[in-house]
Each structure stands twice: as structure tokens, then as C-alpha cells.
Design a protein around this nucleic acid. Sequence first.
DNA 1: GAAATAGTGTCTTTAAGACAGTATGTG
DNA 2: CACATACTGTCTTAAAGACACTATTTC
Lengths: 249, 249
Amino acid sequence: MRRPDETDSEFLRTYDPDAYERPSVAVDVVLLSVRDGRMCTLLVRRKERPQAGRWALPGGFVGIQESLESAAQRVLRAKAAIEDNVFVEQLYTFGEPERDPRMRIISVAYVALVPFELQATAGSAEPDRSVSTVGIPWHGATGGAVELRDSDGRIMKTAFDHADIVGMAVKRIRGKLDYTPIGFQLLPETFTLRQLQRVHEVIQDQPVNKDSFRRRMLASGHLEATGERQRDVEHRPAELYRFIKRSAV
Amino acid sequence: MRRPDETDSEFLRTYDPDAYERPSVAVDVVLLSVRDGRMCTLLVRRKERPQAGRWALPGGFVGIQESLESAAQRVLRAKAAIEDNVFVEQLYTFGEPERDPRMRIISVAYVALVPFELQATAGSAEPDRSVSTVGIPWHGATGGAVELRDSDGRIMKTAFDHADIVGMAVKRIRGKLDYTPIGFQLLPETFTLRQLQRVHEVIQDQPVNKDSFRRRMLASGHLEATGERQRDVEHRPAELYRFIKRSAV
DNA sequence: GAAATAGTGTCTTTAAGACAGTATGTG
DNA sequence: CACATACTGTCTTAAAGACACTATTTC
């Protein structure tokens, strides 16, 4: 808690916080996963007007004494049953005056990355809530709105500017992949190099050279061999790796 | 404020725009330039409480019908006499509950890049406003608060979390420099390759290989030779280049 | 043994860095 | 002319891509 000095305290007593009309502030969370060679995200079917029946990102208003990140974590807990130990990063703030017809709502968007198993649990946790996962068709270019489709390939009508938000999330993750180790956030705790490669290929939507990918990953110092191997596969089982935090450089 | 047990519909049905206290939303602009081998930014001396006398980023509250980017442009016009044709990009949204002692203020920060000549004009446009430029000492690492010093090397006391915001801005620009042509935004319309190289060196705080820098820049397709040459230099004048928007790929 | 994928060693290609040498301006 | 910096060509080095080959599992 910042401690204003005496004169500041005096000033604060006379400050009129109601001089200007204020917008509402919300957070929306793009919960990304990779499944079957596609990216997917969690959407919630709106039951209320406006735009009832359309699909929206899980979100909520920011409490007056709540930090933005806390609000995002709360939304994840409440709407996706996902606890705090996942990758969450602020994405962008969407504030066009007409983006929500109700009133002026400024939305601070967050991206979260989870293994698909967790997202599948979230999607089926409360069936009355009509939660669903969708694939993101890839258009090569980065940024802008994306089309969201359900498991049968039908386009899902999205609410407000949420298709733009998802597009921005994909762009951000794609950009970070090259210079930050985040691919493992989309995998279980132990994984094979091949699985990690597939995650990279899906995010970038282009094939990755296997040999050089192995070399780069192993040389990065972020991976640690577990000594364990895959089980129940129909071929030679690959070594399982674990992500380790890079030691001081 | 926190009610994780509520379902979506309950939350929305019970949300009365006037029932909950709303935060104020502001924009703050980091106006970056490069001068004499250092990065610098525009600060304004606060005359109002709280934190009167401290140095703050130019900023202002967002109007209830004003977009965030418009607000940033308005702040640039009003406090730095800078018109719309400069690089402006949303940076990050700072929303810790106690970051401003007056009340809950969520600040959407923007970065703007301008040639130093423009910033110098802005800094002296309204002397009664105590505008000043400062260098940013570089600590090698990225992110976090930075120290801001005046032209005599004295540390300037900054208001609120504005030192963090400047640190974030430097980190962002540094990161973008490698894969986006933004260096020219910090130079006049025509410039030499050497000047562009110096800008890159200042931003990254490390020397750049001259030969490979020339090759990369000329191969990027972003530069166009003007046929003109430098004047009034004490050595062989270099060719002047101009930035061109990359044609379709 | 056949099939499938994991993992290794080496050659080629490409981009960056190093460096020598030439060109062109000022005084 | 000396001097300073712009510009060019070539060699070296490091990383990525290509590819042949071996290894280990299931069926």
C-alpha cells in the first residue's frame, strides 16, 4: 500500500472521484490448447442478452479492489475450473466505445495456455453451461479476427469482438514461440520431443525440420531427460523430457 | 468483490451498471526518442497533488465515448504538440489496485516513437509546463523499472509506477526491433545506414556488426535509396535512404 | 521378420562476422 | 597530399536443413 504524505492525504479528502463518468472494466480470457493438430480455445454460450446464443470468451468484471491478473485467475477458476499454476499473460486491452452495446466496457484480455486434457475437463465440467472447444482455422497471416468452428466444422457465431481477441492471442503466442520456451505449457508435465515439435508445427502452421528442432531444443538447456520412456505406443517408445527453468546465465 | 461461486447467468443478471463501483481508466504515453547515443522520453512535472513535483508520463483520463487510441493521440497533441503521423502502439495495461493513491485508476500505456527533433520541440513547446527529456540508463536485463535522469545525470523522482511503464516500453521496442522495421521511426524521413545502425545499437545497448547490418537492411526490402547524399559532413557523404512499406509478399 | 518411429553422424547450404581493399568526399 | 568515412568483395565460422543410416519397440 502506497503511503501518501500528509499533504497528499489532505488532498485526497477533497478529491471528487465522481467528476467524470467512468467505463466498466472487464477481463476476458483466451484459454488456448492444442488438440489433434489444431489450436482450440474455450468458449461459453451466452444465455443473456445482448447477443444471447452467441459464443463468448470466459470473462467477468474487475472488482474495485481486485488486480487485473487476479480477476483473470478468478475467471479461470470460476468458468474453467482451472487453478493458478498455468501460464497466464496479459494480451491486449480492447476499448472501442461501441464494442459492447450495453455500455462502455473496456476489456483487458489475457491468454492462458493449458494442456488439452485440462481444457477438456474444463469444457465438460458444467454441462449446463454449454462450454465447448473449437479449432482455429489458420489463414497464414497473423492478427485480425479468426473463424471459430465446433468439432463438426460449423462456424460458431461469436459475441462482440471476441473473434479479434482470439486472433490477437494466436498472433502473440506464435510470436513468442521463437524466442521463449512456452510450447511445453501446452503439454503434460513430461512429453517427448516429437510431441513438442507437433505443438510448434500447429502454432506456426508449418512443418518444422525434425533434426534441427531436436538440436535447438536440447541445446537450449530448458529440457531435462527423465530417463522414463513412452508406454503403450505401437513403435519404439521415445524418451520423456521435462521442462526445467533456465539457470542464471 | 470476488464471487467465484456465482454462475455466469447470475453474475450477468445481477450486474447493475450502477451497483458496483467502477475504476477510472487513463492512458499514459511513453514518447521515446534516441539522442546522443541514449534513449530518452518525455516527462511532465506534476503540479497537482498527489505526488506534486514528481515527474510523470504525459497522460489523461479516457473519455466515456473516446477510444483508447484516440485518447493516446489526444494526449500527444495536448501535452507534446505531436500530430497523428507518428508510430503509436498499445503497450500494456497497469491495474494494481494501489498504484494511484487517489482512487482505483487503471492505466492503458502506449508507446510512441519520434525523431529526437520532434521531441525536443515538444519539450520546449510550453515551458510553463516544465517538460523535460531524460536518458534511460541501461541495465542489460529487460523489463522492470528503470532509472530516469535529467541532462545533468541527476535521478528524477518519478510518480506512481511510471518508471515500470518506461521499462516495459524499452523492453517492447527492443524486442520488436529484431523482426519489425521500427528503427526508422526514430529518424528523420531520410537517413543514412550508419544513423540507422546507431539507433539499433542504442536500443539494444550493444555494438552491431556494420557489414552484416548493411546486408540485412538492404536485403529486407524496406529501404529505398533516394539518390541524395549527406551534406555538411567532414568526410565522404553517405547515401540517404527512405523507408518504404514492404510490398505484398 | 515387417513396420514404424526414435535417435545419430555427416554433408550441404545459408547467414552472420571478420577483414582487406577500393572509392570519394573534406581540409 | 593526408585523412576520414562510405562502400565492396571474399574468406571464415556457426547454425539450419537434408539425408543416409542405425536402434528399438510392437505386431
